[in-house]
Computed example of a mutant assay.
Amino acid sequence: MKIEVWSDFVCPFCYIGKRRLEEALSSFPHRENVEVVFRSFELDPKAKKETSLSIHEMIAQKYGISVEEAKRANADIGKQAEEIGLTFRFETMKPTNTFDANRLAQYAKEKGKLDEVVERLFYAYFTESKRISDRNVLLELAEAAGLDRKEAETVLDDGRYAEQVRHEEAIAAQLGVRGVPFFVLNQKYAISGAQPVDVFRQALEKVWTEEQQSSSLQSLAEGGKTCTDGNCTID
C-alpha cells in the first residue's frame, strides 16, 4: 500500500495529521507493507521569509478576526497537538516561506532520508521556533538527518529540486487539493484533513482488504479463445 501525503511544514494540522496517521500505522498488522511518501505543497507560495508579524497577527489578518480570537484558535490547535504528543509554541513561532524547505525535502527523498528531514522540519518550526527558510537552519537539519552538509549547501544555493516541488504541487492542483494535509491511498482513495486516528485505522483496513480481494486487473470479458502452455482451444 502506498500513502502519498501532501502537506506543508508550517501547517499545524499537517503535523497533527502526520502523528495521527503514524499512530494508526503503529497498530496496523501490515505496517511493513505500507509506504508513506510526503509530497510538496505550499500554503502560501508568496509568503515572505521574514516578517515582523506574529503568527497570531498573521492569522487575524488572514481571517479577519481579532488577535485575541486568533490566540484562542491557536490555543485550541495547541491542545489537539498535545493530545497526540506534540508541543506547539505559537508565541515564538516564526512564520516564513517554505519553498527551500520543500526543496530540501526533495533532495532528502533522493537520498533516502525523507522521513527524517520531514520530521525535523516540522519539529524545528512548531517546537523549536526556528525559521525554516534560513539557510543555516536548513543545513543544520540536513546534517542532523544524516545528509552531507556540503552537498545540501550546493542544493540550496543552486536552486536544485525546484522543478520537483512545482511538479508535485501541480499534481495536487490536478487532484483538486485546496487544503492540506491531503492523503491519497493507492492513488484511489483520499482522506482530507487531520482526521481522528480511528478514521485512519478504518481507511487502512478498508484499502488493504479491498486490494487483497481484487485482482490487479479488472476483467471486462471472459471465456474467449486462448492459448496456454503451447495448446490452443479448438472447437
Rank of each mutant, 00 (worst) to 15 (best):
V180A: 11
Q174P: 06
G112M: 13
Q174K: 15
F90T: 05
A145Q: 08
D134K: 01
S54L: 12
F182V: 01
L156D: 07
M93G: 08
R160N: 08
V118F: 01
Y161R: 07
D148Y: 05
D115M: 09
Y63M: 09
L114F: 07
T127W: 04
M58V: 12
E116A: 15
E151V: 08
Y63E: 12
E163R: 10
Y63G: 02
S133G: 12
I59L: 15
E128H: 03
A101W: 05
Y107D: 10
I59M: 13
G179F: 04
D76R: 09
K109T: 06
A105H: 02
I84V: 15
K62V: 04
A173C: 04
T92N: 09
Q164W: 00
E119V: 01
G146Y: 11
G146V: 11
H56F: 15
Q106V: 00
T87H: 07
I171V: 15
R120S: 13
D134A: 03
R89Q: 10
L141I: 13
F122W: 04
S54M: 05
H167N: 14
A170W: 12
T127I: 00
A173H: 14
Y123H: 14
T96A: 14
E110K: 14
R120L: 10
K113I: 06
Q80R: 15
L139S: 06
L156R: 08
S54V: 11
E68T: 12
A108L: 06
L138F: 00
G64N: 06
I132N: 03
A101P: 02
G64W: 08
V117P: 07
R131G: 03
R160C: 08
A124R: 04
K130H: 06
